[in-house]
Nucleic acid binder design. Structure first.
Length: 430
RNA sequence: GGAGGGAUACCGUAAUUGGUAACGGACCGGUCUUGAAAACCGGCGCCCUUUGGGCUUGUGGGUUCGAGUCCCACUCCCUCCGCCA
């Protein structure tokens, strides 16, 4: 959510920012409503001032036994007027807020202009491997190895689900543990394990609601939403709280499954582990001071990159262009891992600075060390990493000509020393 | 699911028959001091058109000139009973 006062005082800046995104927002309507609201507030506050002073006077009169019936009768009328105006103001406020909640964040000055194709490549790491045989996509190889089963997952749930089996399930679990261990022991994050279902206020706090309800799953009998990412519960850990500047920065990492309806993605990434209704992810979340948030974004991105480096998976970092940013983000780096089946780099992590956009929605503030006014924190988050896509990348990048998959060395301690995922028959023999 | 108790500002705690939220602590600033502590003064939630005013006692309604206080509904927490991995 943007600051209403900022919109009021700098409408042109807001308009220009939204234009960079290619976003339409009802700014004129909002400014008009704001004007009406302020006028009415001013009027009703004068009436309330009168009510307060006269009511006090009535109290005094009654105490001395004097007659106050005239004042009471007058205040009965004033009170009625106040009640009516308060109702009008409340209606205006509701409309203002609902408009405000639909306005996306403004891109940071360093964000490249343009759309989906206008990302800026920041850096590459590693070399895509040259295969001396025809590499298989993970959805074939994983099935042949009997570690991924999409057909049975479809039977029990439907399209866009996966059943991991044997070494596949072990690999997924190993990755989760490896990622959490690295972030907690080397990158300074505190691990949390949050609820996987949350209420609507929580979804509003991070920006999923009210605009993106159709992207989520909602539990029918009690209204809970399944989280689309751990960002949602973790960012809301401090909703409606006041932190001390001494507490900042706060780094939290969390593993959760993520549930996404993928409503607008029919026909996209229909095979394999890339786009599922349920997938696992280890998330990184930060609460920081406004001054430090862009440095923190760089560090957070590096923390996510470290996972790919240790797994020896080639990737690149891109800065998303303005019109490709998520609703709440001011700046986003995507980590894209090399995926042989796509013959391209494919998103495996998205690291964003939300500045105070989420903090304003979720009312997360801190008391500055100098004792000044309470300020909104800046929030950031990034995948560290999407686990299913990491499994896909490992299967594809580490496959050998005989159809086996070499387990990255850093994962072996998490897999009982397992060095290689072998064909079905071989696994059975072992 | 049943019964009872509770929610007040960053934290902790008060408020007679309904009369306009008191006090303590933490924190910040000032005075004082070589410096610090103590003491004293001020600040320490939000909004507006800020020398001023309005709002804020879990949330939403109601009664009233006036509600922390009375009434209704709801949320969350605690205790006990029942059920349960």
């Amino acid at each position: 959510m943007l600051d209403l006062r900022f919109i009021r005082n700098k409408p042109d800046v807001v308009r220009a920012g939204l234009e960079k995104r290619g976003a339409e927002a009802a700014l004129d309507r909002l400014l008009a409503l704001d004007g009406q609201w302020r006028a009415k507030v001013h009027t009703v506050e004068q009436l309330k001032n009168e009510r307060n002073t006269v009511s006090e006077e009535i109290g005094r009169l009654k105490k001395t036994g004097a007659d106050a019936s005239q004042e009471i009768e007058h205040m009965r009328i004033v009170s009625g007027q106040i009640k009516a105006m308060d109702q009008e103001i409340k209606t205006l406020e509701e409309e203002l807020r609902s408009l405000l909640l639909l306005i996306p964040n403004i891109p940071h000055a360093s964000v490249p202009l343009g759309g989906e194709e206008d990302y800026a490549v920041i850096r590459f790491w590693g070399q895509p491997r040259e295969f001396d045989f025809h590499p298989k996509p993970h959805w074939d190889l994983g099935v042949e190895l009997d570690i991924l089963d999409f057909e049975r997952a479809a039977k029990m749930a439907g399209a866009r689900f996966c059943l991991y089996k044997g070494a596949g399930a072990l690999l997924e679990r190993a990755l989760i543990n490896f990622m959490l261990d690295l972030h907690t022991t080397e990158h300074g994050y505190t691990e949390m394990l949050p609820p996987f279902m949350v209420n609507a206020d929580t979804m509003v706090g991070t920006g999923q609601l009210p605009k993106f309800a159709e992207d989520m799953f909602q539990v029918k009998n009690n209204g809970f939403y399944l989280i689309p990412t751990a960002e949602v519960p973790i960012t809301n850990v401090y909703r409606d709280e006041v932190l001390s500047e001494d507490d900042l920065p706060i780094y939290i990492t969390a593993y959760t499954p993520c549930f996404r309806a993928e409503a607008g993605a029919h026909g996209r990434d229909t095979r394999g582990l890339i786009r599922l209704h349920q997938f696992n992810k280890v998330e990184l979340v930060k609460f920081v001071t406004p001054e430090s948030s862009y440095d923190e974004l760089e560090k957070l991105t590096e923390n996510a990159e470290r996972i790919l480096q240790l797994l020896r998976l080639p990737y690149r970092v891109v800065a998303l262009a303005s019109a490709d940013l998520g609703f709440s983000a001011a700046k986003t780096y995507d980590l894209e891992v090399w995926m042989p089946s796509y013959n391209d780099y494919k998103e495996i992590s998205s690291c964003s600075n939300f500045e105070d956009f989420q903090a304003r929605r979720a009312n997360i503030r801190y008391r500055p060390a100098d004792g000044g006014k309470l300020r909104l924190v800046h929030t950031l988050n990034g995948s560290g990493l999407a686990v299913g896509r990491t499994v896909a990348a490992i299967i594809e990048n580490m496959q050998q000509s005989d159809g086996t998959v070499v387990v990255p060395e850093v994962l072996r301690p998490y897999m009982g020393g397992f060095e290689c995922i072998e064909q079905k028959e071989l696994i059975r023999e072992a």
